[in-house]
Design a protein around this nucleic acid. Structure first.
Length: 333
DNA sequence: AAGGTTCGCAACCGCCTGGCC
DNA sequence: CGGCCAGGCGGTTGCGAACCT
């Protein structure tokens, strides 16, 4: 084993930390700070390597850590952000105050991942597993899935060729929408009391566009509020992979790349493999941002650093997004 | 009750990156 | 510019607890 420099120089203890060791480490860091981690063990009187001390402090002893199991909202946030960023646990953990990357990773591997698989979803891509796709292939060719998963209380408006849909919910949800959301599938038209807009407003509705679907079948797809199931799915065909996540942050996934950003809008372009076209994202800051300023994005269309963009540009409050998908065959309204 | 299995989580390992000399 | 080093990160392991037979 190669071993870290600070660990190879001396005989170090490994394995679980004793309460006495914890106490020494806490005392050292709370009184003197950690400074150089490699010097911490010596100063604290510990037979540990600096790296081990750092890990113990960050993952377990830090006073600002949140103890206890993950809440449903935290779980949703993890799923949302993971879908965008993949296994970048440290980045994901930044969206969960008091949680560590290790904790998020363990939770993902021990809990969420299994739920994905149980629901026939690939935990890496969040798409249906191939075996499940073939099941629905024959009865659903309008599988333009779109997740609007948001937990903040701000309204979101999706404008599609002049038709505006308001979405306002406080739970994350999965929506599998037909390619034309204003041309409701025949199987759904019996819901006379529910307008298209209402259906979009229902955060717990799982939309599917199976032509043969009966009323009862549709009912069954409606997720009970705050249920334990994971409301997730995705489709690479979706032209509007917009995800609103916790704390009013808004991110979109790697199926897009930015073209330009102005004071009032960000022009996003689905990548060629997504079918191209343009999606205009207009920002209306004054109306719904509670006075918070939007940190404008600064990027170039080439060599785009998505992670950096997330950190630098998408920190604002709950924003009002106005999406105008243009010339995209999958959103042909 | 005992042995085997599974599960969850703390900790380790190894690689990468960036700063410094 | 290259080597050294520390910090950071994601993948993996190992162990104790919980569960099952």
């Amino acid at each position: 084993m190669g071993g870290h420099q600070c660990c190879s120089k001396q005989q170090v203890k490994r394995g679980l930390w004793s309460p006495e060791e914890d106490e020494k480490l806490i005392k050292q860091i709370t009184t003197h700070g950690h400074g150089s981690w490699s010097s911490v063990p010596k100063l604290a009187g510990l037979q540990r390597c600096g790296k081990s001390c750092r890990l113990r402090w960050i993952n377990y002893l830090r006073p600002d850590l949140k103890k206890g199991s993950f809440s449903a909202q935290e779980e949703r946030t993890i799923i949302d952000v993971h879908r965008i960023l993949g296994n970048r646990w440290a980045q994901i953990a930044k969206h969960l105050p008091g949680r560590t990357d290790n904790e998020v990773k363990n939770f993902w591997n021990s809990s969420i991942k299994k739920k994905f698989i149980a629901q026939g979803l690939d935990p890496n891509t969040h798409n249906l597993l191939p075996s499940c796709k073939t099941k629905t292939k024959n009865n659903n060719n309008n599988n333009n899935a779109c997740i609007f998963s948001h937990t903040h209380k701000k309204p979101v408006s999706v404008n599609s060729h002049g038709n505006q849909i308001s979405i306002n919910s406080d739970t994350s949800f999965l929506t599998t929408i037909p390619s034309d959301p204003f041309n409701v599938p025949q199987s759904m038209q019996h819901i006379s009391t529910m307008s298209v807009c209402d259906q979009f407003q229902n955060p717990n509705m799982l939309w599917t566009a199976h032509q043969e679907q009966t009323s009862n079948a549709l009912q069954e797809t409606t997720q009970p509020s705050m249920s334990g199931s994971i409301p997730i799915s995705s489709s690479p065909l979706n032209p509007l992979e917009l995800v609103i996540i916790n704390e009013g942050r808004c991110i979109w996934d790697r199926s897009f790349e930015p073209l330009r950003s102005t004071q009032d809008e960000i022009l996003m372009q689905p990548k060629p493999e997504m079918g191209g076209g343009e999606v205009e994202i207009e920002k209306n800051i004054n109306e719904l941002c509670d006075g918070e300023k939007y940190m404008d994005a600064s990027f170039e269309s080439s060599n785009f650093d998505f992670g950096n963009f997330l950190e630098s540009a998408l920190v604002p409050c709950g924003m009002f997004y106005h999406l105008s998908p243009m010339d995209h065959p999958a959103w042909n309204c």
